[in-house]
């Protein structure tokens, strides 16, 4: 564990609490992509199968359980509790285009050709692109509530912090995880456009609006 990873994980936690706060206080999941949230559930379920056979640490264990539980809870809120506030006609990204290639990539690029390892690699690739339906929705509506942008910013910060974490680990532990690093850099790159608008508009007190 190092400071970058700890802060990254805390940003990830923060993003989930921001999202829950947004849904609970506005009593609405407007502006949130159900598809992206469903993909995160799949990401956590496929990545954390090692909960059953590989103990890392109490921290690791608690966080994994929390990510699985909270992502399922968010899905429940969107699907049942606040269902009428979700507009499927805006959430139209075809996730088949993400699931298929990620699965094929996981079959080809993995550390060991066995179920848990293929699922792990799949989850890494899928997490990298899971934000697409959300960004696509943002692009379609062209604007977002401030709190939704804070949620996305926290998610982006979490990913960005994992990069110095890998650099740090390379120098201190000699460890490199090429699958996680390549996918992680791609994933962080997807946030660059968003970050640009977030820093130049939202943090200056303006509304999040994309140029027409």
């Amino acid at each position: 564990m190092n400071l970058f990873r700890l802060l990254g994980d805390l940003a990830h936690l923060a993003s989930i609490f921001i999202l829950l706060h947004k849904i609970q206080t506005t009593r609405s999941c407007r502006g949130i992509s159900f598809k992206t949230q469903a993909l995160y559930v799949l990401v956590f379920l496929t990545r954390y199968v090692d909960l059953f056979f590989h103990w890392v640490s109490l921290y690791n264990f608690v966080m994994k359980i929390f990510f699985i539980a909270s992502s399922c809870y968010i899905l429940y809120l969107m699907k049942y509790r606040f269902r009428p506030t979700h507009d499927p006609s805006l959430d139209t990204f075809k996730i088949e285009y993400l699931l298929g290639p990620c699965f094929v990539l996981a079959l080809i690029f993995n550390y060991h050709f066995e179920l848990a390892e293929v699922l792990w690699a799949f989850s890494i690739y899928l997490e990298a692109v899971a934000i697409f339906p959300q960004l696509f929705m943002l692009q379609r509506t062209g604007e977002a509530e401030a709190i939704t942008t804070h949620y996305l910013a926290a998610l982006g910060v979490y990913r960005a912090l994992y990069i110095p974490n890998w650099i740090y680990r390379y120098f201190t532990e000699g460890v490199v995880d090429p699958i996680a690093v390549v996918a992680g850099i791609v994933q962080t790159g997807l946030y660059l456009d968003f970050f640009y608008v977030y820093f130049t508009k939202v943090l200056q007190g303006q509304k999040f609006e994309l140029p027409a």
Partner: peptide, 10 residues
Amino acid sequence: EAPKDNHDEL
């Protein structure tokens, strides 16, 4: 050697 036991990140 691939970091088989190295899935210690979230």
